[in-house]
Design a protein around this nucleic acid. Structure first.
Lengths: 242, 242
DNA sequence: GTCTATACACAGATAGAC
DNA sequence: GTCTATCTGTGTATAGAC
């Protein structure tokens, strides 16, 4: 699947998801009309990401946010009780959306090498489609109070576990050779993160998500694939070397 | 060279360097006695890193810093004019130190594969020895005003250039195969950064810098080394696979 | 050189009119 | 539902005694 197709499928998905997620946080919101809530929360979240990614969440003032979102300070405070709650809502919404998409795509695959490809590709595509949030989440959740930080760490380890699992399964079925899979998984994660953390750099060099995905997959396969499977891919021209 | 040996050499080096660097920033400091300046700036910098890495530089108040450094607010302000200047001083001191050490070690090597090893190893060792600063620098310099941000980006691209250059030279002398070296270099950088950004994770798993270095080198060599050189290393047992 | 006490600006948050 | 006006706490930075 290429990136354009991927983006189309998730933007349809996003609408349903948004309403569903709202019901959970509804208790904290004073506004009655659902349409208004969805529309304005969206503006608020976008503005938050835009400003925070420039100068940090802590440095963003409510006046900044008010200006960027096009709502008065008073209006803002009818959507959340305090600045910290704004962050919690934003995080919980995006986090569960991300998790859902990722799992669905991986579970759809059956072959072990395909699972690896898809995990890498979908993670990159997701972080491309939601780059501001991925960046924000990485940079900001570290400085946050106890329970929120725990969730950030859990989320970091969760994706890693997925890769570790795939690599372990692959070794059993002789698709991958023996390596330190835990370490490999964490390095894959680091390479995935670089895509959204250094977006400016790759943009300047005209590297597309597809190219980056292909390159990562080739690195990982060169390192992990068993010799027999390397040959198979080569004859199929499938592992995207160069 | 192992990490313990490395650390010993740089801690000797650091003393001379500190005095040398102070002369540049001396004009902004009201204190006369050099010994006092060195001693207190050290306390201030350490405290800054400690607090900032917990809750962010922006969120660190001067009262926090005063408490942690063991100096009153009044005393602090005789070492710098404002909070932003504190950050500039810290950055300039550590940045030039890092650069010097890195270059010296790489230039000492002559073989192209050795240059690659050393570049990876020394970068990791440096970021291990100065982990709080590397972490801080990554997380904080993005949110800073114009000229400081430019320096951060320059610094990011500088290390990358080193790796790109080594890979290019290596291809010419047939040590490395043809790849997208610019992209490989930026991925190496990402893997190096993961070491100091996720220090907690590797510590919990009892992965040492040496192990991590060995693993990175094996990934890069598996991907880049020409088939003939791979064999050479294997018979020498030198590329640390597994 | 280092301290305490204080000025002053600006942040987050609310009240109440429309 | 959204606005303007305002309260109150806290942050940076300085003045001046010791």
């Amino acid at each position: 699947m290429n990136y354009t197709a991927f983006k189309k499928t998730i933007s349809n998905y996003a609408k349903d998801f948004c309403n569903e997620d709202l019901l959970e946080n509804r208790k904290n919101i004073r506004i009655k009309k659902e349409g208004t809530v969805v529309k304005n929360l969206d503006k608020i979240f976008d503005a938050t990401l835009k400003i925070s990614n420039k100068k940090g969440f802590q440095a963003m003032t409510m006046r900044d946010l008010s200006g960027e979102a096009g709502l008065s300070m008073g209006a803002l405070y009818s959507y959340f009780a305090c600045k910290e709650d704004l962050l919690k809502m934003l995080q919980s919404q995006r986090r569960s959306f991300t998790k859902k998409i990722l799992e669905e795509h991986i579970n759809r695959e059956t072959g072990i090498a395909d699972k690896l490809h898809t995990a890498i590709r979908v993670h990159l595509y997701l972080s491309e489609a939601m780059q501001p949030w991925f960046y924000f989440s990485y940079m900001e959740t570290k400085n946050i109070s106890g329970p929120e930080q725990a969730k950030a760490i859990e989320s970091e380890l969760y994706t890693e576990k997925i890769f570790e699992q795939i690599l372990n399964d692959g070794e059993k079925s002789k698709v991958f050779i023996h390596r330190n899979h835990k370490l490999t998984a964490s390095i894959i994660k680091a390479m995935l993160q670089d895509w959204y953390l250094k977006r400016w750099k790759y943009a300047k060099r005209n590297i597309s998500v597809e190219q980056y995905a292909k390159y990562l997959i080739s690195i990982v396969e060169t390192f992990c694939l068993s010799p027999e499977h390397k040959k198979m891919y080569k004859t199929r021209g499938g592992n995207g070397l160069h």
